[in-house]
C-alpha cells in the first residue's frame, strides 16, 4: 500500500533546552524507518537543509516568551496541517515559566547589563496560548515511546494511544510498591499524567510531575495530605512549581500553598 506522497515533517524550537528534539534524534533504531516514511522538511537540530512549507506535521518544542516568537508560532500554525506541541515548555511554559510568578522587569535588571536591549513578554506561555494546537505530547523531556506512537498514529490515520490518567496506574501495572504509602516519600504521581512508565518511583523516588497534571487532577487533596504528614507550605510550593509550574492545576496548587506560606502578599 504505497502512500501518495511522503508527509512533510517539521520540527520547531522556541524557548527550550532542545531535550525534546533530542528525543527524536535519540530514536536511533527507528530513524531510518522514519526517514523512509516522512520527508524531514525542517529540523535544524539535525540538518541545515530546509524544505519550504506547508508542512503536514509540525512538532513544536519550547515556550513562547518573546514578541517575535508570537509571530513565528502564528506563521507555523498557518503552514501546518497538524501542529503538535512537545514537552513541558511547549505545553505548559516550562521551567522558565517560574518567572511568571514575579515581575519579569525585575529579572531583566538583575541579569542584563543593558536590559533595554531585551524584548521579552510578561510571561512564558505554551503555544496554545496563541494558536490552536492539535495534540500535546507531555514530558520533560518527552519519551521516545510516546513520540513514536504519536508519529505512527499520525502516519496510520488513527488516534494515538497516549493516556491522560495518573502515573499511579503505570506504577501499579509494573508492580512497583507505592513510595508514598510504604516509605512516606512525597510523590506527585497521583496528580501527574502517565507516559514516563513510572520512571522515578521505579528508583524509589517520588514523581516530580514532569508530564504535567493528569486529566482530572486534585492537587489540593494531595497537598493537604502531605501538609498533614510533615511537609510545610514552602515545601509544597517547591513541589508544584517545577517544570510544569504554570500548567493550570499545578499553578493553582502552587499559588494556594504560596498564599498559605505568605498570607500577607499574594504571589
Amino acid at each position: 500500500m504505497a502512500r501518495r506522497r511522503k508527509p512533510k515533517l517539521a520540527v520547531w524550537k522556541f524557548a527550550s533546552c532542545d531535550g525534546c528534539q533530542l528525543t527524536l534524534l535519540d530514536c536511533e533504531e527507528e530513524l531510518l524507518t522514519l526517514a523512509g516514511e516522512v520527508e524531514i522538511a525542517y529540523f535544524l537540530e539535525a540538518s541545515r537543509a530546509v524544505v519550504r512549507g506547508p508542512y503536514d506535521l509540525s512538532l513544536v518544542e519550547g515556550s513562547i516568551s518573546t514578541p517575535e516568537q508570537v509571530d513565528q508560532i502564528r506563521e507555523i500554525r498557518r503552514q501546518s496541517r497538524f501542529l503538535v506541541t512537545i514537552g513541558a515548555c511547549a505545553t505548559a511554559g516550562g521551567i522558565q515559566a517560574l518567572r511568571n510568578f514575579a515581575d519579569v522587569r525585575g529579572f531583566l535588571d538583575l541579569v542584563y547589563a543593558r536590559p533595554e536591549y531585551i524584548k521579552t513578554l510578561e510571561k512564558s506561555l505554551p503555544a496554545s496560548a496563541y494558536v490552536p494546537v492539535d495534540f500535546e505530547l507531555r514530558g520533560c523531556p518527552i519519551g521516545k515511546g510516546p513520540l513514536l506512537e504519536l508519529i505512527s498514529a499520525f502516519l496510520n490515520g488513527r488516534r494515538p494511544n497516549i493516556p491522560n490518567h495518573s502515573v499511579c496506574i503505570e506504577c501499579k501495572r509494573r508492580g512497583i510498591v507505592c513510595v508514598m504509602v510504604a516509605q512516606g516519600i512525597p510523590c506527585l504521581g497521583p496528580v501527574t499524567q502517565a507516559g514516563c512508565g513510572a520512571l522515578c518511583p521505579a528508583y524509589r523516588r517520588g514523581c516530580y510531575g514532569c508530564f504535567g497534571p493528569m486529566e482530572t487532577p486534585n492537587p489540593a487533596s494531595l497537598g493537604d495530605w502531605l501538609l498533614a504528614h510533615g511537609m510545610t507550605s514552602p515545601d509544597l510550593v517547591r513541589l508544584f512549581r517545577t517544570f510544569n509550574a504554570y500548567a493550570p492545576a499545578f499553578r493553582e496548587a502552587g499559588d494556594r500553598y504560596a498564599e498559605a506560606a505568605n498570607p500577607d502578599r499574594s504571589s
Binding site: 495518573s166 496506574i169 507505592c178 497521583p190 496528580v191 493528569m214
Partner: peptide, 13 residues
Amino acid sequence: AQRCLTCGNCTMV
C-alpha cells in the same frame, strides 16, 4: 470527591 484523587490506585490493588 473533594479528597479523591481519581488516581485509580484502589482499583489497581
